[in-house]
Amino acid sequence: MTLSTANTTAKGRSMKFDVKTAGPAIALILLCIIGFSLNPAFLSEGNLSNLLTRSAFIGIIAIGATFVITAGGIDLSVGSMAAAIAGVMIIIMNNAVDMLGTGVATVLLGCGCSILLGIGAGWINGVLTTKGKIEAFIVTLGTMGIYRSLVTYFADGGTLSLDFAIRGAYRPVYYDSFLGLPIPVWVFIVVSIVGWFLLNRTAFGRYCTAIGSNEGVAKYSAIKVDRVKTITYMIQGLCVSLATIIYVPRLGSASSSTGVLWELEAIAAVIIGGTVLKGGYGRIGGTILGALILTTIGNILNFTDLISNYLNGTMQGLIIIIAVWLQRGDWGKAKASKT
């Protein structure tokens, strides 16, 4: 059978495939319908804009996590990393006021440091897993504790607050809009596009998938496994720093409670989106939907008093499990495999 004549058999297959990948999108649409029927204000411009902006943090981090997970790794440190970067960024900017003033220069310095810190923290995670040959779970569990306690230490147990004088210059990064969309949403869009291209259209993306699918094959296929894996953690770090850059101007503060459980939300978003937790298959588009689904659940729960507040976690848990089940369930698919 040649390549061009196989379309008839391929069709049924790809149709099924589409339904599967559309799972998260369907779940999101259903959630929106539920939200709208509970309260029409759910679809108001203001709320949609809030939703998208909120999704940006988890979404951007989750895009980084998509690379790590696709390549067969895991990064539990992202939430603490965000808090630590936010803390250090605030300290640096507060101290730079005397030298650079309260304008854009200080903000840029803060952002630059954030990016360096993020990439550096990712590099540490990557090198410890690859060269140190320690399981990613353990390495990032360790760095998670370290970053979390560092921010507590920097803040002296309390809250680090950004100098009010700088906020004027920095505030627009969170609160302003461009062409009707808040800046964080634009950042999210750009990161998504770059992430999608990187994962689906470059050799690097292919290498991530290959490593996650079978590290042995990757090694024998002339792939520098350690380097690629380390880079995935650095991408994760970069994404965390970008999320932090748009997070800090929101409230201008960081404390030990910043970014708590973000790692789990990011991982959940990635998995809801259809990426396989054990690696080898990643979907940036799905991750974006996953992040939107997670924020929408929280948003809808705030929009109704039908469900006891104490059961919020139950609702979130149920929806996450159902969303993944919809995708994974073997819907009567006869497993056709020949000799």
């Binding site: 759910f42 203001g46 709320n47 809030n50 929280g298």
Partner: peptide, 11 residues
């Protein structure tokens, strides 16, 4: 606090 209040304001 920020997010819950945002939602209260929309609602």
């Amino acid at each position: 606090g920020f997010e819950v209040m945002q939602d209260f304001l929309s609602r």
